[in-house]
Each structure stands twice: as structure tokens, then as C-alpha cells.
Design a protein around this nucleic acid. Structure first.
Lengths: 199, 199
DNA sequence: CCTACCGATCGGTAGG
DNA sequence: CCTACCGATCGGTAGG
């Protein structure tokens, strides 16, 4: 399918240049046609971005098919494994990093996509943390922890892309997750003992 | 000074649009002149970006003057306080988030600036963590922890800009820092006891 | 600093 | 007649 060649080319160009600076001409060249051909297939540059984001989600689903959504502590382990794999997928990491940050600019077409994506990730992580802490902590604490763990993954990618040898993404992520679990366990112990934990 | 009017206007436009999509015409209008006047003062769009980044660093130094660089645990507390202040400075947060992520794209003029900035931040944070852990842990562990804490701050900003009501930056950052300190303390205890920590 | 421009490139659309 | 494009060009805007 020509559509798939365009989606692959657009994924690469959006990753290297960002959405606003990417040109349909460059995407079209990489897909072996003119930019009019790209428009014929996707209608506009904006609709092409939407298709690229959906295409990437589909690809992720396919690669996760055999894992069938890990639960609880296994999900946290899955995040560290993903960070490890990401050190060999700089292109994908860059696409995610550039587009997610660019999406906070005025009127960016991927704003809704990333807002929903983060909301969904937080819910998945809260579920995993609730299992690990056996449901003894309020959802708010789990949600703040979920935000923080997702943030750590994303922030590490920026530092790593700028200076790959200075950053060890999986090691830093594991440190953060294990620290977060210790913090949550300490708060559980605090709840049970009835006294404040001093640290 | 007209230069300062241009710097303020450029800071705002780079923050809302990013560097590549920002136009000199828009910056000039906001500064009350033509885009040729902007070029007259700064030579090129790229040199204007460099001046904006230096200008922001100067402003930060001025605001930190009375604090004169907090050390050890006080520095960690300073990070949480900054996150708290940032919830009232969405413009500055957006500028930092957009430009730092955009800088990983091909040939971006702020690449060196952000690479050096992250390297400097990691060193400051390693110093603070070394004080807190009384120098008993290897620098590599402290450095991985430093990367992770900086990453948490940056990643939280993206989530917060997209959905301010769903994210509590200072609370999530404090959870991460306290978790990281627990993790480091556990590793110190492991070193002293001579036995491996199980979790 | 402005007016008056340049080479180039942007996303999108025309008829065929 | 359709699909999947093409070469050419539209009106505007970019940095300098």
C-alpha cells in the first residue's frame, strides 16, 4: 500500500523536524512521490499527523499482543524493559519526545491526542500501583506517583537524546520506581502504625 | 532599551510557537517595530534565540541572588519550591518545555545550550545528593538519581501544560525526591550491613 | 530603525 | 467511468 509508505516517511520526518517544521515535500520525496500524492491520500498535513499517531498506536498494540497487558508489578517491570529497548530506538524516542512537547504550543493538532494518552497512562499506572500496595493507599497518592513515573520516563528521553553517554535511562527509571515503591510502603506502614513517618 | 523589548517579545513568541515556527515578523510586531529592526539588533533569528536563552539565565540569577545557591537537602527543597512557583508561571514553563524538546531536532541552534544545561544541573544535584548521603555511595548511583529527578521535573511540566488540573507538580516531585532518598538510604544500609538489599 | 525588496519554500488545489 | 497520481501553479509568508 502507498499509504503505508507515506505513513513510514511521515513518521520519520515528523520525528526529525517536528510537525510544524516538517514539509509535505520532504515526506513525499521519502515516500517516492510528489507532495500532491500525499495530499491525495490524507487530505491535509494535519490529517496526516493524526494518521501517523494512530498508526504508531496500532504498531505498539501489535508488538504488545503476546504480552496481553501486564498487571501490577509486572507492568512496572515492563516500563523498565521498554526504557531498555528504547536505547536502541532513538528515532521512535525522538518522535515521541518532539511531538509531545510541541503539542503544548498554541493550536497544535496533537494536543488532544497527548492529553488523552497521558490520562490513559496515569490510569494504567494507578491500577498497577494499587495492586502492588494492596489497595491500602488513597488514589490521589497513587495518581501523583503515576504522574511522576511517567514524567521520569519522558524527561530521561530528552536528556538521553541530547547526551546518550551521560544518561542511563533504564537504570535511572528503575531507581525512581523502586524509590517510589519504598515511599508508598512507608506511607502504608504509617497508616497502619497510626503515627507519622519521620523518614 | 529596545533590545530588551525585543527579548521580552521573543521570549513570549518562542514559548508559544517554538523556535522554528516563530516568525521574526510576529516578534517585531509585539516589540513595536518591523522584522528588519529585530535583525538590525540581533543579526539573525538564531542569534536572537541565543540572546533569549542567556537573558533568561540572567533573570534566574538575579532572582536567586539572595539565596546564593542552596546546598545539600536545602537544594532539593529549593527544587520543590521552584515547581510550586512554576504553577504560576505557565509561560516560562512552556518556553522551557518547548525549546528543550525542540532542541533534539536536527541542527537545532539550542542543542549545545540544553546539553550543557542538563550536564550542569546533574552536577549540582549529584553534589547535593552526596552531602545528603554523607559521601558513602558511588558517584554513578548519585548521577543516575540526579538524571531521574531532573527528568521528573521536566516530564511533569509537559503533562501539566496539557492538563493542569490532572497534575500536581510539586506533590509529584516531592514524592519522587523522598522516594529517591529512601532508595539511596537503603543502599547505604546495604553497604554497611554487607548484605544485598532484596527489593 | 524603515521601505522595499530577494530567493526559497510553505500547504493546498487546479485541470487533465 | 474509477483510482492514483502528475506537473504546474495558486495566494501567502518565511528569513535575511
Amino acid at each position: 500500500m502507498r499509504r503505508e509508505a507515506i505513513l513510514r516517511a511521515a513518521t520519520a520526518v515528523f520525528a526529525t523536524r517536528g510537525y510544524n517544521s516538517a514539509s509535505l515535500v520532504e515526506i513525499a520525496e521519502e515516500a517516492g512521490m510528489t507532495h500532491s500524492g500525499v495530499i491525495h491520500h490524507f487530505g491535509s498535513k494535519e490529517q496526516l499527523l493524526v494518521a501517523v499517531l494512530a498508526y504508531r498506536d496500532d504498531a505498539d498494540v501489535v508488538s504488545l499482543e503476546d504480552h496481553t497487558a501486564p498487571k501490577g508489578a509486572a507492568f512496572l517491570e515492563h516500563l523498565v524493559r521498554t526504557a531498555e529497548q528504547n536505547t536502541r530506538r532513538a528515532g521512535i524516542v525522538q518522535g515521541y519526545t518532539v511531538l509531545s512537547a510541541e503539542s503544548v504550543t498554541e493550536g497544535h493538532p496533537a494536543q488532544g491526542y497527548f492529553r488523552d494518552r497521558f490520562a490513559g497512562l496515569r490510569i494504567m499506572l494507578v491500577d498497577a500501583l494499587r495492586v502492588v500496595t494492596e489497595g491500602e493507599l488513597p488514589d490521589e497518592v497513587l495518581d501523583r506517583t503515576a504522574s511522576a513515573i511517567i514524567a521520569t520516563m519522558d524527561g530521561l528521553q530528552v536528556q538521553w537524546l541530547l547526551d546518550p553517554e551521560a544518561v542511563d535511562m533504564p537504570t535511572s527509571l528503575r531507581l525512581t520506581i523502586e524509590g517510589a515503591l519504598r515511599e508508598l510502603e512507608a506511607r502504608r506502614a504509617g497508616l497502619r502504625g497510626g503515627t507519622a513517618v519521620t523518614r
